[in-house]
Design a protein around this nucleic acid. Structure first.
Lengths: 189, 189
DNA sequence: TGATTTTCTTGATCGTGGTCAATTGTTAAT
DNA sequence: ATTAACAATTGACCACGATCAAGAAAATCA
């Protein structure tokens, strides 16, 4: 499956776009590679577009002092942005960092606007953004569930993350100390 | 200040719309009143539009068993929606309930689309939605700060909420037991 | 107005999960 | 291959905040 068809597939899942529309979209994409540890976005910068991950993975986190708080992980065939910064066009407080060598394609906000102007169907791209919100589910989970329950939830929603990302980052995402995650896992064997 | 000018004001904060555009927008609004305890949205329903609160206040929460978890409060002169449900057009898992007698104006999603088709400027309304996201700040706060810190944060971000909404609901929003919030407050006098 | 329900406060208890520390395991670099 | 840096595990400790319970205060309703 080619890079372009991956992206077209993803678009078609949100709306039955015509071939011409898909080509208008993909023709505006900017392809980039990020080495592991390289940044797609740093705190202080303004998010300029929406990025599709062709291969690899990235991590969204913020920093207070030298403590990192992992907010989300993104893996291949998903869309990615710092939504708050993108929509407000104000500088982000977050970092988006390649966890592995990553290949990606970005559509700039201005091109998105051009597409919406000329092809009203592209309004539906708002749906792309849905996955980028911090879901109420995740927040509810953090507020009400204990570490065991949160781990089991992740086991069902993103089992792949667990043997892909380091445990201390997973723990941070789950809102618990790394030692606690380690013990939760030990309890299950 | 009239209801219409409140809404126009709010729109002008996101984008310099022309008077004609503002009128096109306000002409499509649906005005509604909600009595205290009445629901704007119930779990299982699909969010059909974005609502501006003219007066009163509402609470967004979800329910597991008979336990309510407060996700957000909304007060006059702000926009409101269940964003996940609105964008995906799938049934919501949340409730939006009037906390006080509330007067509001709703723009339906289909009208929003019509406006975007005919006036590209209305694309910028995405900005309206920004305030509706669960902010990464709130999530970070819940994950990393203790009850005292979270209370102080709310004191600076939404001091008005504290003498407007019941403490047990505030406590739920802050992710702590009502007794804990009571003690946090006692400690400050 | 008084009666009933709900919310808030305060106390006492207890368990969970964070922190600190030491050890082992893994990864990365030269 | 060796070292260094980092990640994961395990144990010991204890503080924070949840829970339970009872009484006071406030809000709601007839």
């Amino acid at each position: 499956m080619t890079d372009l068809s991956k992206i077209k597939d993803s678009l078609l899942k949100t709306h039955p776009f015509a071939e011409e529309q898909l080509d208008q979209f993909t023709g505006r994409l900017i392809f980039q590679r990020f080495n592991k540890r390289e940044f797609l976005l740093k705190s202080g910068q303004i998010s300029k577009g929406i990025t599709f991950i062709l291969s690899g993975s990235l991590r969204l986190y913020n920093k207070t002092g030298d403590k990192e708080l992992t907010l989300n992980f993104f893996t291949e065939n998903t869309w990615l942005a710092d939504l708050e910064s993108l929509l407000t066009q104000q500088s982000s407080t977050n970092y988006i960092e390649a966890f592995e060598d990553t290949s990606a394609a970005t559509i700039m906000l201005k091109d998105l606007h051009w597409l919406m102007d000329n092809y009203p169907d592209f309004r539906m791209l708002n749906k792309l953004l849905t996955g980028l919100h911090i879901s109420t589910m995740h927040l509810a989970s953090i507020k009400t569930k204990n570490p065991d329950e949160r781990y089991h939830e992740l086991l069902t929603t993103h089992p792949d993350w667990l043997n892909r990302f380091p445990q201390n980052q997973i723990a941070s995402y789950l809102g618990m100390a790394p030692e606690t995650l380690s013990r939760v896992r030990a309890r299950l064997s």
